[in-house]
Each structure stands twice: as C-alpha cells, then as structure tokens.
Design a binder for these strands. Structure first.
Lengths: 159, 159
DNA sequence: CATAATGATTATATTCAATAACTATATCTG
DNA sequence: CAGATATAGTTATTGAATATAATCATTATG
C-alpha cells in the first residue's frame, strides 16, 4: 500500500490534508471556487469605483430600462432596503436616473444613462477578462457545460 | 419582430427581467447557485447545533487527526484568529480534543472524539440529503461533470 | 545569547445581510 | 366613497461573518 502522503484523494492539497467528506459536498466546492473568483472581480471593479453589488445593479438596470427597485431587489435576491444606498450612489454618480412613474407615484423607474451603460460595458469586459484567469484552466466544452449545469441548478428552490 | 416580453433570454426569470451580461459571468452564476444551497445546509446543520464553518472544521479534524490550527485555517482558507472560538466550542462540547504537542509546545494537536466523528458522519449525511433537494435536478452524469469541472477550477490562483 | 519567526490568542474594526418601523401612495372591499 | 389592506421606497438598527492588529509563549536562527 502507498504511503498516506501519496494520492491526496481530494482537494485542499497543501500538506497532505484530506477532506474527502467535505469534498463530496457541492456547497463546499461551489464556495471554494466562488471565493477564488470573487476577489478577482472585486479588484477590477474597484478600478471603476464599483463593488460587485453595484455593478450587478448597474448591469441589470442597463439591460432593463425602467425597472423599479423592488424588481431589481428581486432579481438580485437581496433586500429592497439594502438597495437604497446603492441606487443613491449610482444616481449621484450620474450612472442612472430615477424618475417617478406617473401612473404609480410610489415607484421609481430606473434607467441607465449613457455614461452608465458605457461604464457597465467596460466593467463587464474587465470582469470577463479577470475571470479568464481562473477559467483559463477550462476548455471551451467544459466552460459551456459548467454554465449549462449551473443553469439547471439555478431554477428555483425553497426560498 | 417578437415583443420584448417574449424570450427571457437568460436567467432571473420572473417578470421578463433580463441580465444577459451578468448571466455570462461565472462568478455571478456560482454565487447564485451557492446561495441556494447554503441555507439548506445551514438549516440541517443547525439541528445539531453546528454552523457550516464548525461542521467544516469538525469534518477536517475527523479526517486529519492531529492537525494543528494553522493547518486547519489554511485548509479552510480562513483566518487563524477566527478559528479559536470555533475550536473552543467544539472542544467544550466534547467533539474534539486539543492536546499540546510535546515537541512543539506552541501547537495543539486537534483530534475528533468518537462522539465528534459520529456527529460528523450524521451531519454530513444530512447535508448530502439536503443538497439533493437542489441536485435532484441533475442526472448522474451532470453531477459528476460538475464536480470534475469544479475540481479543475479549484486548483490555485492568485490569493 | 539576542533576535526573529511561528502558533495561538485576544480585542477591535469592517463589512454585509436581515429586520423592523415609518411614510406615501395605491388597491381592494363593503 | 370610506376605511382597511397592500405595496414601494426609505431609514435606522441589528447581528453575523470576516479581516486586522497587537500580545504572549515558544521555537528557530544568526
């Protein structure tokens, strides 16, 4: 039989640490990969004074002109209340506009400005490039498969 | 041309909200799936008064008897300082032991007790079952593929 | 031996998401 | 139509998770 030092069995390489049980749990594995990618995105977005969440907002607003805050919160699966400051800032920076809807004055129509759309496009390109640092390990097939499988998982579940 | 209401294009279904740009970013997609699975694990672990992080610790200690705290912190990619309270609690609950290493009295050898190992096994089984609520959508092939691809991504990157 | 490095700890700060309460407007129901 | 109920946005507050910095004991190094 080989020494236990050989055949790391699973992840968490380094000094022969094994975690075969954790390694078989998808949640754990997803988190690990996510935690690798997230800081990369964070870093490049910071160059444009964006955080991941504000970039996500800007991006969805860009693609959905006239969206209102609660729809946005819903799309990003976050609390309406936590959106407010983010929207405030995007508006102050002239990246989006916030207009009262005449037919329902409780709601604000959010729309990205030209500047906002351009910034979104530039930032998205940067994030894509940054992600490639990690995704570079995958061939085209694997990349597609990953996105496809994630898509299948993404469909609902108990809230 | 069809109405923009048709062809949701990508995720974030609901009311015709599109996010084609975000949708193509792996970080975003990983996070969404992770955020679906994580609460499920959290819920079942809470039944045994475990949090995700303490379960992870217990699990790795179980698989690596004698591991020391800095190695554990390294394996879980967390700060040593944040481990302390978790280890304290696991020890107080009699799930692990913490023994000074005679050859290096700065370090503690962490080992799971019998109770700890059993709890780990039961908890892991529960988490696996809980994850199946989401993974049920995948056939066996997709599941394997997902784990394989995650494995390829997991290998290092700029810290 | 003096100094630096390491492991564990403590205290502190930052960040983020969740909750509750409030205002304004809109909708529903008798 | 009046009053109750629901919705959109906001504010303030909380708690959890994570990161940072300083400290102490022990070990390694020059």
């Amino acid at each position: 039989m080989p020494k236990p030092d050989e055949s790391p069995d699973s992840g968490t390489e380094k000094k022969g640490i094994t975690d075969s049980v954790l390694f078989s749990l998808i949640g754990y594995r997803l988190k690990r990969v996510y935690m690798q990618i997230q800081p990369l995105a964070q870093r490049v977005l910071a160059e444009n004074d964006l955080r991941v969440v504000s970039f996500s907002c800007l991006s969805i607003i860009t693609d959905n002109p006239g969206i209102v805050q609660s729809e946005l919160a819903d799309a990003l699966q976050m609390e309406r209340s936590n959106l407010v400051v983010i929207i405030d800032e995007l508006e102050e920076r002239g990246l989006i506009t916030r207009k009262k809807i005449p037919t329902d004055r409780r709601r604000y129509a959010l729309t990205a400005t030209l500047r906002g759309r351009h910034l979104r496009d530039r930032a998205a390109a940067k994030v894509r490039t940054a992600e490639d640092e990690v995704l570079g390990w995958l061939d085209e097939d694997d990349r597609d498969r990953l996105l496809t499988i994630l898509g299948r998982l993404e469909r609902r579940t108990a809230r």
